[in-house]
Design a protein around this nucleic acid. Structure first.
Lengths: 155, 155
DNA sequence: TTGAAACAGTTACAAAAGTAACTAATGTTT
DNA sequence: AAACATTAGTTACTTTTGTAACTGTTTCAA
């Protein structure tokens, strides 16, 4: 057991990097290089969510989230709209261009999954998905103050 | 199948982040906040490898690798030693202090794994490890030019 | 043997991400 | 309703990471 010890964090960050850069390479010619997950989230909730809601969905701070929104606005994929009820908020609306892109992103994801999981059997894929969901649930419900800190501590 | 589509890259990068920051939190009081994998690699090959070798092992460019070496040197965990045969190279040697740290890092990894995989059965853990190895092998043998680019493209 | 190419490592600059302080709007308390 | 606290979003600054150009050394072909 000790002999087989694994630093999953190291491998995972490499795999995630390759995963996202593969997807990025596939999608760049179509007009979006990153922030696929946020765009998909917004397309499901177009006009109904604020930056704060997006920040919660992607579990990132509001500055990072604002940069994503800036990026997607610059690309003409979403728009900020003032919320009439609360002028502090802005509702995020996916444009026609953004909506067209979503199915293409999903194709890109499928293609990326095919590349990376090419040697996985159907049941292996299924088991892996279940495991990832478990891990994701675990990290999203962890008692923050005890162990978890920001991505990396500064002094 | 399409309905259950998953952007693994997004989840993985979050999981990796939490994983490494958990480990970081556990290890910081002991004198090392990051670069656990490089130190473990170097401890297995103390005095026998160069920065280039380390760069290959962690699959990173040489500048990033140099920064890791700087960090570990600053902490007094490794030392750069001129290679007499080739004065371009420097052999990386783990200090006594560094060697003492390695088993503590392994304990930290075990503890981190326990936290993150607490709801995994033995066979689930085993299957997950196999899957991660497969993925890691896949990304390390991928035909670079076709799909894979750097972590993120700049213009 | 010498001059171009390759190589290990470093430096310097550019882009991205994190942190904290700020602005403007809304809520709350007395 | 005035003073204070809270909230959404932004700006400004710092740290980290990526990229390219550079230095000194070695290799190899003419």
């Amino acid at each position: 057991m000790v002999k087989d010890l694994k630093i999953y964090g190291f491998e995972m960050s490499r795999i995630a990097e390759v995963y996202l850069s593969t997807l990025s390479t596939l999608m760049t010619p179509l007009g979006i290089e990153r922030y696929f997950f946020p765009l998909i989230f917004l397309s499901k909730n177009s006009g109904k969510v604020t930056q704060k809601d997006l920040a919660e969905a992607i579990r990132r701070d509001k500055v990072y989230t604002m940069r994503i929104v800036d990026y997607l606005c610059d690309k003409g994929l979403i728009m900020r709209k003032q919320d009439c009820n609360d002028r502090r908020c802005q509702l995020l609306e996916v444009t026609a261009k953004g909506k067209e892109l979503v199915p293409l992103i999903k194709e890109g994801i499928e293609k990326t999954n095919e590349i990376l999981f090419h040697d996985f059997s159907g049941s292996e894929k299924e088991a892996f998905k279940v495991s990832m969901n478990k891990l994701f649930t675990t990290i999203n419900t962890m008692p923050e103050p005890k162990y978890i800190v920001k991505a990396f501590k500064r002094k």
